[in-house]
Amino acid sequence: MWADEAYRRLLGALALLVPVVAALVLYETARGAGPSLRVFGWGFLVSTDWDPVAERFGALPYLYGTLVSSAIAMALAVPFGIGSAVFLAELAPPRLGAVVSFVIDLLASIPSIVYGIWGLFVLAPWLRSAAEPWLTAHVGFLPLFQGFPFGIGMLNAGIVLAIMVVPTVVSISREILLATPRSLREAALALGSTRAEAIAVAVDAARPGILGAAILALGRALGETMAVTMVIGNTNRISASLLAPGATMASVIANEFAEATGKLYLSALVEIALVLFALTVVVNALARLLVVATTGGRRDVAGAA
């Protein structure tokens, strides 16, 4: 029937707008990055210059900042996230588990700017006056924890990022743990395992999926902008110390894009966006693959990813 066909085509056309939009976003970012790509080539990724007056640009400090802040976030969010997921899926009474899961999901809906303001006005003073002096005093022999306690900086950004991405780790890991067969735990218990040992068997079975959840969280951390921009300090110096300020790819775009004068300056910022785009697409694809592989493509879980 022609009407059926027409309706199907209409829906199909709307659906095809999605790939078209994605292609436009990619095209526009690549086009905008063109001048910078031509002038700096691959050197852009390894240069530490950032001199708008002399029009020399390199993204290394921002690449470094993005990777280090995300690494701190992962180091905090993954252990705490997996612990919480185990608690929620295996240990908590169902009522409590539902309430805590709800609260953790709420954590995911808090706007980034709210985390930023909290990190700037609450976390930073605490880090400056209490946590960072303690770190320099006790583990200050490590280059990671030397220098002046600014409060804002890499460590603050990493902690805020961890708080922001931990709900992702928790909710997906929990779904995956719930999807592993009960018989795994029962078999372990029947063989005389303690409860923790039986849970370890289940966690082991869920490992690829949990890894996927962690990588998905990494994808969010890499691209997170506002909260990081507010607490990282925004300087293009690379410091060994986590207490020192830095900048990330997203934060330098947020800070400088609107004020960037000069074609090449703007183009360099767009190229940073392009690199960030590529990085997150690869990381997300990897994560999705792992989650789908572990859950056998169960729609609800894969959808949550």
Binding site: V21, V25, G32, G223, V270, A273, R288
Partner: peptide
Amino acid sequence: ALVRSTADVLSGVPSIVIGVATYGL
């Protein structure tokens, strides 16, 4: 399959990158 996978890609693109692209577009 194409629509689904591009929607997934799009949902992972950092919002700042969407801002940069919209600026150009």
